[in-house]
Design a protein around this nucleic acid. Structure first.
Lengths: 115, 115
DNA sequence: CTGTATCCTTGTTGATACTG
DNA sequence: CAGTATCAACAAGGATACAG
């Protein structure tokens, strides 16, 4: 029996960590191939990408579809369980943008919006 | 010059990690003393509590007020910069509660709502 | 292209003891 | 009550090489 002391602890267990939110943010906007995600999240290593995708899959938030082709093609998409996160992730994103504007020195940072 | 590839990366840098969200969630509902926070977040160690509070303070999200008494009294409250996080944290919280209901086995977990 | 396996480094976290 | 300091332990992350 696992004990949580706040609903938020559950959330953080499922989508917390260094990469989960970021991956979900991109996948939630539409199915993505592994290589696309790698491009959208330049700082992630292949190992962490795959590992995190597996964890999200295990949590039931994304699903993995494999096409039997050569070369291989795999697509990740969100499950219904994940859809309700979309507005929240968007809010978090917006908040970060505002925060950066207000709190970071103008010429000490840049935000590139990849697509 | 620091480069981000998504606004969300900024957010995660500021309020990501194991404890920041949880502390903010409690402080945002009203000023809290150190010992209250320790009680509300049973699994955090004193070291991590203080350390995380300092980080949040450095990010401008909370402020620390010290009363010169014996025994000492300290209160943490949120700054204006932090207020806009309130609805987001509430959403994240709600989401976690729903997720637990749907995805966890009935008798494998419990959520205690401390106050 | 997608994914696995290994090794190694780092940083975060925890336990404990102590101070004003 | 609030906070500091030190050290140890562990998990997370990265680099690299390799495979289907």
């Amino acid at each position: 029996m696992k004990t949580y002391y706040c609903d938020l602890e559950v959330t953080l267990e499922v989508i917390g960590g260094k990469w989960k939110g970021l991956i979900l943010y991109h996948v939630i906007k539409g199915p993505k191939r592994t290589s696309e995600l790698k491009r959208l999240i330049p700082n992630i290593t292949q190992k962490m990408l795959i590992q995190t995708l597996r964890e999200l899959e295990a949590s039931g938030l994304i699903s993995r579809k494999m096409y039997n082709q050569v070369p291989p093609k795999v697509e990740y998409s969100t499950t219904e369980l994940c859809q309700s996160l979309e507005p929240i992730l968007r809010s978090l994103c917006t908040w970060g943008g505002n925060y950066a504007e207000k709190s970071f020195a103008q010429d000490e940072f840049e935000i590139l919006h990849l697509e």
